[in-house]
Design a protein around this nucleic acid. Structure first.
Lengths: 206, 206
DNA sequence: TAGATTGTTAATCGATTAACAATC
DNA sequence: TAGATTGTTAATCGATTAACAATC
């Protein structure tokens, strides 16, 4: 497994390839970048370059062995490695993410949620008071934090996570978070997505 | 309100500006692109260009009137226009999105969810059988569809939405959807986000 | 008037795509 | 061998950033 110099845009396409490959694994023993590109409506050189950063098992004329490529993508994407994570913010979105079993498939295991509101604390439901976050993170060696608090509290929660040893943050609050250089923030900005949708409709319907 | 030639990257930054402006509306009567750029760690020319595509009320030396700019951004982003939408896929994610009240703020009003599994249908909970989708969409003039079904069913659901008059699709399934040219697909690809997080950790911890 | 800030034109950068050489 | 496919080098494209002119 080598993880060098891979662009974010490439990285974000890899799960798409993996998903496509899984859907056709019974159909193709071997598969080419050309076929994948066709199916996903992408440029074939782009697919070839993306795959080259994950695998070097492609053979001219033959392409890739589908099962091998699936395995290489899964390994590369860490789907076979469990990453423990916590959520901060046990509102509707936080609870939904915690209850969503689909993340297991991607190697993400959400252990616990934290909230500052005493009324929502419920250790049986795996919701703990935020005061216990630092100790929990250190003890369980948590490296991924998920932020689902309102925008105005997101920065302080972010600071707390960084202090507690978290290295990567998945941020659902529509704010820019300031973090030290070596910490990654991945924004899941639903407001941004909605902006694109709404703008398209305004265009279409005007 | 003019919606011409605005790039997707600009569009996705606008909600960030709006959110920041709301957080400082009591502090600054006037605000400049420079201050916004500083706060959000963006390039000031970028912010200036982005704002120019939404507003022309900026004055040299003074900047923008904060409240006016907030209003202009909200109008542009359609936050003051209600867009009715439906969800297809009443699993955990679908239910969570339907229960999430936060979208109201962005002008998104989720009216109903649809599912093909008779066991989850519950009209009191606003979950209807998928067979009723086309009629509902036409009657209610639904233009936005949200897809939260498993990957393998996403394309057929997408086709059904397009047939039923939907113009913009918010896709939570990790697949590429084929749509006619004038239909917009906005992918909310959590698998892609997780790929970026996981790759960062693999880099850091190796 | 001076200078902070806007808005524009030009340069740079990174990602995508096209052209081509290598090879099973 | 012929040609489909890989992988690489060069060209293009779009977005970001830098330099600058306009102005309240």
């Amino acid at each position: 497994m080598f993880h060098l110099n891979i662009s974010k845009s490439t990285l974000q396409r890899l799960p798409l390839y993996l998903n496509y490959l899984k859907s056709v694994r019974d159909k193709y023993v071997n598969i080419s970048a050309t076929i994948i590109a066709d199916a996903l409506k992408l440029n074939d050189v782009q697919v070839r370059k993306d795959l080259a950063s994950v695998s070097s098992s492609g053979k001219p004329k033959v392409g890739y062995v589908t099962e091998d490529l699936i395995k290489e993508l899964e390994d590369f994407l860490g789907y076979n490695t469990v990453n423990n994570a916590i959520i901060v913010g046990a509102g509707k979105l936080g609870k939904a993410l915690m209850g969503y079993s689909g993340f297991k498939e991607y190697g993400l295991n959400i252990l616990m949620a934290f909230d500052s509101d005493p009324k929502v604390i419920d250790e049986a439901e795996r919701i703990m008071p935020i005061e216990k976050l630092p100790e929990f993170c250190r003890k369980m060696n948590i490296k991924i934090g998920i932020i689902t608090v309102p925008a105005q509290n997101a920065q302080e929660v972010c600071d707390l996570l960084v202090e507690s040893g978290v290295l990567a943050i998945w941020n659902f609050a529509p704010v820019h978070l300031r973090v030290p250089e070596d910490i990654l923030v991945q924004n899941e900005n639903m407001a941004a997505a909605l902006a694109v949708l709404s703008n398209h409709l305004a265009e279409k319907l005007k």
